[in-house]
Design a protein around this nucleic acid. Structure first.
Lengths: 124, 124
DNA sequence: CTTCATGTAACAATAATAGTTACGAATTCG
DNA sequence: CGAATTCGTAACTATTATTGTTACATGAAG
């Protein structure tokens, strides 16, 4: 698919698509080609791409809204809060990452196909 | 403490403090008084105030950066993603909330006091 | 009745994200 | 080769959310 097509599907702009896909490309998850017949395609089988791969590839979007505001806060109260909350956040994040690692795009595709089938069944 | 004092401690503005404290007040965690000698104070012992209480009182700041963009996405792919990721997110959130519920402001205060003590010991 | 403090609305400033335009570089097709 | 296509990227604008500010009303203490 071209960036243009993806942008249409995602109801956004081709440049925005390229910006995001660049991260996935640098991580070796997708590949891009220029010119006629170019566009984006997966670099490996869907079963070999986990959500964790994608999460890491997209970089910084930290998991939690809440969390340390600064690495080394000067405020002593803030330091205490970070200490006390820190472990809980780490544990929760670990759980989530483990689940992400265990889920592949193939799983997602399977879920999608199943939903589509049910949809067809419902409509007759 | 007055909003003015808190604002100074937190390096922000008195109105911003009141905005945030309003949520805590509505939840019965703190109380405010006007006029001479007014200001903010806790409504109950620190040991009876959990981080979960505070989290809930402050309202919407959802735990996760990532998560469903819309409640009922029209996009079928998005629906699949939400299904597959949803459980993992819920589990991680549950872990975090349990920890928050188990931690009180008294715990925080204890940690703070201990840190202060070590600091004094270090400096002589 | 003056002073102090919260309560709140309205507005401005700031920052983060998303969208747009523009143009260069690489690839394919005729 | 030359035209069409498509990514790559920089620069700029628009939008949105958050934060900060000003202003003024309300209530309490002395």
């Amino acid at each position: 698919m071209t960036s243009e097509d993806l942008a249409f599907c995602l109801d956004t702009n081709a440049v925005v698509v390229r910006r995001t896909m660049a991260g996935l490309r640098d991580a070796g998850i997708v590949q891009s080609g220029r010119g006629h017949g170019g566009g984006w395609h997966f670099a490996r089988p869907l079963a070999d791409i986990s959500l964790l791969d994608i999460y890491n590839a997209l970089g910084e979007p930290i998991v939690f809204q809440i969390g340390p505001a600064t690495e080394m806060p000067g405020c002593a109260v803030e330091q205490s809060v970070n200490r006390v909350i820190g472990d809980a956040l780490k544990d929760a994040e670990a759980i989530l990452m483990a689940r992400f690692a265990a889920t592949t795009l193939a799983d997602l595709a399977a879920d999608f196909r199943m939903a589509a089938q049910h949809c067809r069944a419902d409509t007759g």
